[in-house]
Simulated scan of single mutants.
Amino acid sequence: MIFLRPEDDFPPIEMTNEVGLLAFGGDLTPQRLIDAYSRGIFPWYDSTQPVLWWSPDPRMVLFPENLKVSRSMQQLLKKETFRVTYNIDFKTVIKNCAEARREGQQGTWITGEMLKAYLELHRLGYAHSVEVWDGEELVGGLYGIYLQEKRVFCGESMFTRKSNASKYGFIHLVRKLAAEGVQMIDCQIYTDHLASLGAGEIPREVFLEYLK
C-alpha cells in the first residue's frame, strides 16, 4: 500500500490489495477528489485513520435501465407520497448522512474533514444532493459526485427518517439521470439494499472503461 504526499499522484489501480485498498495519505482538495473519482477511486475512512483510498474489484454499479421498482414503491410514486428536490440543502443532507446509524458500523466515515471537502465540491458544482420531503419536513436524502462529462454519477451516502424515503429519492434520481443520458451509477460496494434496486457487481476493468 502506497503512502501519498500532497504532491503525489495516485499509483496504478492494479496496485490495490485484495480488499481494494490502493493508498493512504494525500489530501481532500477538490482537484484530488475529482481526479480520484475520474479514475474509479474514492476515499473511505474514519476519524481514527488517515485518508484511505479505495478501488474495489468487483465494483457495484447500477445501469439505469436495470432499475427495479417494487409494486409497493410504484404505489408510493403514483400517489406522490413525498416531494423530491435537488441541491436545495446539500449541507443538511450530508450532515444527516453522517449522523445516520448503520448496522455493523460504529461512528461515521463522513468526518468533519470530509464534510468540509464535499461542501466545497458542492460549491464547485460536482457534489449533488437529493432531498425528500414530507410536507416541510426533510425525511430522506442522498448525495454523490456527478461526473457529467463521463455520464457517470458516483453515489456516496443516503439517509432516511421515514420508511422508503431514501429509496423514493433514489428512484427519482435514477430516472432523472437516465433522462440526462447518464450511463451508469457507481454504488461502490455491494449491499442487499442496492441489489434490491437492480444494482449488481461488474469487474473493475469493465467499470473503468466507462470512465475513459
Rank of each mutant, 00 (worst) to 15 (best):
A179G: 11
M158F: 09
S72Q: 08
M1Y: 15
V206T: 14
T85G: 10
Y37W: 14
T29L: 02
H122K: 03
L121S: 10
D186W: 09
M1D: 14
A127N: 11
P50S: 12
E120Y: 12
E14C: 03
G144S: 12
G40V: 13
P64K: 03
A165Y: 06
V93N: 07
T92P: 04
A178W: 08
L194H: 05
I41M: 09
E131Q: 10
E137R: 04
L115R: 09
H128F: 07
A98Y: 10
F153V: 00
N96L: 06
L21Y: 07
C97T: 14
S55R: 07
Y86P: 01
Y210P: 02
D9E: 14
E131Y: 08
W54V: 00
E180M: 13
P43E: 13
D89W: 07
R204F: 10
V69K: 04
S55K: 09
E136H: 13
S55E: 15
L173M: 10
G169R: 00
G135L: 04
G135D: 06
V19W: 11
L52T: 12
G140K: 02
V139A: 02
C154G: 11
E156A: 07
E103V: 11
V182D: 01
K68M: 11
E180F: 13
F90E: 04
M73R: 06
Q183D: 11
R83W: 01
K79W: 00
K78M: 08
V93W: 02
S163Y: 12
W133M: 04
E80G: 04
V132N: 11
V51I: 15
L173R: 02
N17W: 13
Y210V: 00
V69Q: 08
K176A: 14
W133G: 12
G155A: 10
E205A: 03
N87A: 02
V152Q: 08
T160K: 00
R151Q: 15
L121Y: 11
P56I: 01
Y146A: 08
W44H: 05
S55D: 14
T108Y: 14
F90N: 00
A179K: 13
L147C: 12
P50A: 11
D134V: 00
S166H: 03
V19K: 04
E14R: 07
E156T: 13
L21N: 05
H172M: 03
A36S: 13
F207P: 03
E201I: 03
S157I: 08
G25T: 13
E113Q: 12
L194Y: 06
L121N: 15
G104M: 11
V139D: 11
E80L: 00
V69D: 10
P56K: 00
